[in-house]
Design a protein around this nucleic acid. Structure first.
Lengths: 176, 176
DNA sequence: CGGAGTGTTTAGAATGTCCTAAACGTTCGA
DNA sequence: TCGAACGTTTAGGACATTCTAAACACTCCG
């Protein structure tokens, strides 16, 4: 029980909240935060002790973190334990999370809108012309909107240095 | 039961998913979608019928939608019903949702990180110098990161035409 | 072999969120 | 004043999610 424990506890708790908020779960946030404030790689047992979750839960969440590239695993000769290291580059971290969310969003949104448009065309004959035009215009607007967002996010994700883009965006040059 | 019902059902269901995904809830997404595909303002009873939720639930979610500016309310002389109209400008819609999330995120993230930093300073005397420097560096990195993101999002929110920014971002001019 | 050390899987408990049903309050017109 | 129309609030049920506990599988070493 050293004197910096409060520091870690506060930060870990906060990252738990952020993890929930961004849809990656409280435990994942807490695990990542714990690793992030550790000078050395940690084992699953270390995490079980420090985060206060069970081994099984740690296992599941570590696997998810590995899949997202938010944590990496390493080994030591003559030691059967796995050692975990956090992705400490916060911009890479953000890119991973954003990429994941983008993927999910894209699936559901694109599917429903384009399917609606197909159905609209299919039933065009049975509709009043004004109704058809109205629905077409609205659904097209959604599709265009989504397409633009999607391209913008992908452009962001392709930037090797997201940080630079953010700084540039912040510097309020009026470009017109 | 006209032939375009499938169109609406598909889209409404999809927006329900998107609402969940963005943390505003399924019902809010569905209600907004229903209004968006209606040529005329709708009453709460209309929505109860079309979306298939109860009056109470509709009431709660409509209030939330109003608060976020995603829906607006109007009246007709000699008619006690409230009439609801969707925010049909999708860029304004996105701005509202983004603003809301930004607010929440900022609260939790800033609070935990800066509190951690305070605690770190408070317990500085009892810490090995190397440990102090390590924690300070990591927490500072988080705070800087968060500050940059926060400024970037606020810059986006201030743009009167978010669409233009997205289009510009997409057009991949190498600016260095 | 057998047993200790490590990580994974799973059944179910705990928790939180969403939604309904119904009571309630208010306003308006007969 | 009464009752109908409309919207709000609330108690609780249904559901999904998250987490625990414990069984399980694998590997290595004595």
């Amino acid at each position: 029980m050293t004197s910096e424990d409060g520091v870690r506890a506060t930060f870990v708790e906060g990252m738990g909240g952020i993890g929930e908020f961004w849809g990656i779960g409280k435990a994942m946030g807490q695990i990542w935060a714990t690793l992030y404030l550790s000078q050395d790689p940690m084992t699953m047992d270390d995490l079980v002790r420090e985060v206060g979750i069970t081994k099984g839960h740690a296992s599941t969440n570590l696997r998810a973190l590995l899949r997202l590239g938010l944590v990496s695993k390493s080994f030591r000769p003559g030691d059967r334990k796995d050692y975990y290291t956090p992705q400490a580059d916060l911009w890479a971290f953000a890119r991973s999370v954003l990429r994941e969310r983008q993927q999910q969003e894209f699936d559901v949104a694109l599917a429903s809108t384009s399917r609606s448009l197909q159905q609209l065309e299919a039933s065009r004959a049975g509709l009043p012309a004004a109704e058809y035009r109205f629905l077409k215009a609205r659904l097209d607007a959604v599709r265009d909107f989504h397409g633009t967002i999607d391209r913008a996010v992908n452009a962001l994700l392709r930037l090797e240095d997201l940080h630079q883009a953010a700084v540039r965006l912040t510097s309020r040059r009026r470009s017109n």
